[in-house]
Design a protein around this nucleic acid. Structure first.
Lengths: 205, 205
DNA sequence: AAGACAATACCAACCAGTTGGTATGTATTC
DNA sequence: GAATACATACCAACTGGTTGGTATTGTCTT
């Protein structure tokens, strides 16, 4: 008598999204088949297409889910409550560096990985990735706005700096994957911090 | 009587690599099928598997071909012959910005795009991408070495700066694809130039 | 409180088309 | 004439997606 432990009713969608997050980070979106996803989630194809009308729809949901969960994670982090805005920026960089203390697939960005494949082949997924990257920039932009208000730097906007953070994050993932080491990503954040300290005339304490 | 213009004998391999470069930049590696490649190259499957033992082998050859052609393009560029090393670095940044005056797929990096998908699924391709990224850093690293020799900056190495360039290039592509505009990539290079001018005490002329 | 009923959540089997790859044949070149 | 450079035809495995069904849940009525 074999006891088949089934996935509890109501969890299928969440498990599919979790499986997708992991598989996409490891193999990319196109290389992850619907069968892969169902097997990893412990669910059948019927369940998959009950919750998602297509594989593309799951891709959109995956990126949106990524946006909200990472958004919640950053929003809840104590760095947001430091009194000085520039300290908040530096604490954000620290947090970013801490995230690199994980295996590479674990710190790679779902939106960034997916958009490379979806840029032309799936406008909806690209759109979701755009919102994700934009929302990600919002984790530093307000602090940069406040810091620049207290200490203006000619020719430098909070928006372009916030996007520079995103470029560093995404580029860090790509280079880390290529060289198979998080070091270049970490050092990119070191340079970013040094750049900001020079811009804002705030030498390391 | 239909005249079928065939691909001249001996060109199949080169045409397959050219087709692969274009298709991979637009759709990614996994989403590009062998049939796609043959159709785009105007060649049959027999030709494909005559020149490449597998799709993976074409992926490796594609990345290697990318490394050599881009390497030759940068090596031949006049920025290398400027007298001052830091001027060479700034001219390299200018060149990088010029490359952004193209449609996004045209300036996206084949190695960077591919490695995201191949990181775990294909060690040989990942290895080729590692060599490509490493070789790419060599287009600035010597100039940074010379610039730092003339004007040392405590705590800053030419190697980590060269890798920062790679992070900016790769991150620029990802963010540009996500937001569907080259602006963040361009501004990342602006910030990079400003950072270097601060580090080397070389205000804009 | 119990029964009817419809929605929801899921499953197993199946489908047509596509995938990477092969076996075999033929025209060119050296 | 032997190697090289292809073309044609084909295949098993897998692809995203569909089908028809079942078990579970909530909801409304009596």
């Amino acid at each position: 008598m074999t006891i088949v432990t089934r996935v509890p009713r109501g969890e299928a969608r969440a498990r599919l999204l979790a499986a997708a997050r992991s598989l996409v980070r490891h193999k990319g979106f196109a290389a992850t088949s619907v069968d892969d996803l169902c097997a990893a989630a412990g669910v059948t194809k019927g369940a998959f297409f009950h919750h998602f009308p297509s594989k593309e729809a799951l891709g959109v949901a995956l990126v949106q889910d990524w946006t909200t969960t990472t958004g919640a994670m950053f929003a809840a982090h104590p760095y947001n409550s430091l009194p000085d805005p520039l300290d908040r920026v530096f604490a954000y960089i620290d947090l970013r560096r801490q995230l690199l203390d994980q295996p590479i697939p674990e710190f790679s960005c779902v939106a960034g990985t997916t958009v490379q494949e979806a840029y032309e082949s799936s406008p909806p997924i690209r759109q979701a990735a755009a919102e994700s990257i934009g929302s990600g920039a919002e984790h530093v932009r307000p602090h940069l706005v406040a810091a620049l208000a207290a200490h203006p730097v000619p020719g430098v906007t909070a928006e372009s700096l916030a996007q520079l953070f995103q470029v560093a994050v995404q580029g860090g993932v790509v280079v880390a994957k290529a060289l198979d080491t998080p070091t270049p990503a970490r050092e990119a954040f070191d340079h970013l911090e040094r750049y900001l300290r020079l811009l804002f005339d705030r030498p390391p304490t």
